[in-house]
Design a binder for these strands. Structure first.
Length: 342
DNA sequence: CAGAATAACCGCCAGC
DNA sequence: ACGCTGGCGGTTATTC
């Protein structure tokens, strides 16, 4: 059941447009992130309003019906205005296009997910600007709206406070980016963690390691030290050395690193090391000791400790799991994997 | 697995 | 005043 946020939160206002033939999945991205606060952030969290041209039940793609509680005036008055995608062939109503223009004039942050980009283009908001949409529809977008610079490679595009995203799932990346803008990297990472551990994703990505760390491109000193670390993972690296590479004191480096990535240098480095070890386990016959050394763990016991903590199973079990996965006729779920004795 | 040695992390504060 | 840097010392995490 989709409802609007209660009166509790006092954070930024977000509105999402509910329209015929819309994708429930993409609206779900919006409600999951903006309508559902992280623990401890209930008071400061977003106030989400689900809006439609005519409030009430709206049929969506796939046969379900969702109710919108708010009208286009509310839609246009939010600080962030989101158009989720759906059937690209549906033409947005004139009233919707006008609401988008009003929101734009008011200075709202305008966001589209997937084919929602077509509505922004139809409203004229993207003229002369770069934009993204689903890869199957980039030609259609360029054809119908010649003034839009369609970027067919980006996951999402930000230009002049207008954000457009490519596929449905990249809408998730984009929404996380907005959370990052609003609340900083720590909160965005916590949100990514929550989304990744959603139970229904387990079967698809049982080995996913959380590395939603994006380096702030403005901070090239920290970014440079991180690049150096990634290229020299096999060496022993400590914080003083990283700080030196970044031409900063250790104290400042810790602070800048945290500000720009939301995590700390050594925990980031450990995660990168474990991540880098995965292909070695999957594709080589190297012993665990050799794999550990290749990715910079001086002692295999330390490698095992962190691997288990991050991946959830031992390196040997992971390797065995990959082998059986490759041999099996089809993908197995994590539950099956556990049931089979790993 | 416990626990000691060491390193990382972070609040505080002075100084630029 | 404001924001950033960097040293000090205590707490937490890592390593072995």
């Amino acid at each position: 059941m989709i409802t609007t946020a209660s009166a509790g939160p006092t954070g930024p206002t977000v509105s999402a447009l509910l329209h015929d033939d819309m994708s429930a999945f993409e609206l779900g991205i919006v409600t999951e992130i903006f309508g559902f606060p992280l623990p401890g952030m209930e008071a400061a969290w977003y106030r989400l309003a689900i809006c439609a041209e005519r409030p009430g039940p709206v049929p969506i793609l796939g046969g379900a019906t969702i109710r919108a509680d708010h009208d286009l005036d509310v839609f246009a008055s939010a600080q962030t205005v989101i158009v989720p995608g759906g059937d690209a062939r549906s033409e947005p109503a004139d009233a919707v296009l006008e609401a988008l223009r009003v929101a734009r004039r008011r200075g709202s942050r305008i966001v589209s997910i997937c084919t929602g980009t077509f509505a922004l283009a139809a409203a004229g908001l993207l003229n002369g600007k770069r934009a993204a949409t689903h890869w199957m529809l980039t030609d259609l977008l360029a054809e119908r709206f010649p003034l839009v610079h369609v970027d067919s490679s980006a996951l999402y595009v930000e230009e002049d406070n207008i954000f457009t995203s490519a596929g449905s799932a990249s809408g998730l990346d984009l929404c996380l980016h907005l959370v990052r803008q609003d609340f900083g990297p720590s909160v965005a990472n916590a949100m990514a963690r929550r989304l990744v551990i959603a139970p229904h994703r387990e079967g698809y990505q049982p080995q996913h390691i959380e590395t939603p760390v994006r380096v702030d491109p403005e901070d090239d000193r920290v970014a440079g030290s991180m690049m150096w670390a990634l290229n020299n993972l096999d060496q022993s690296i400590n914080v003083d050395e990283l700080a030196g590479r970044a031409h900063m004191s250790t104290r400042s480096y810790l602070r800048q690193f945290s500000r720009s990535t939301g995590t700390s240098p050594i925990s980031w480095l450990i995660t990168q090391r474990v991540q880098a070890s995965l292909p070695l386990l999957e594709n080589t016959q190297l012993s665990i000791e050799q794999v550990a050394a290749r990715v910079g763990f001086e002692r295999a016991i330390t490698y095992r400790y962190h691997f288990r903590r991050i991946v959830g199973k031992t390196p040997t079990a992971y390797r065995r799991w990959c082998r059986s996965e490759t041999a099996a006729a089809g993908p197995r779920s994590l539950e099956q994997c556990r049931a089979s004795g790993d």
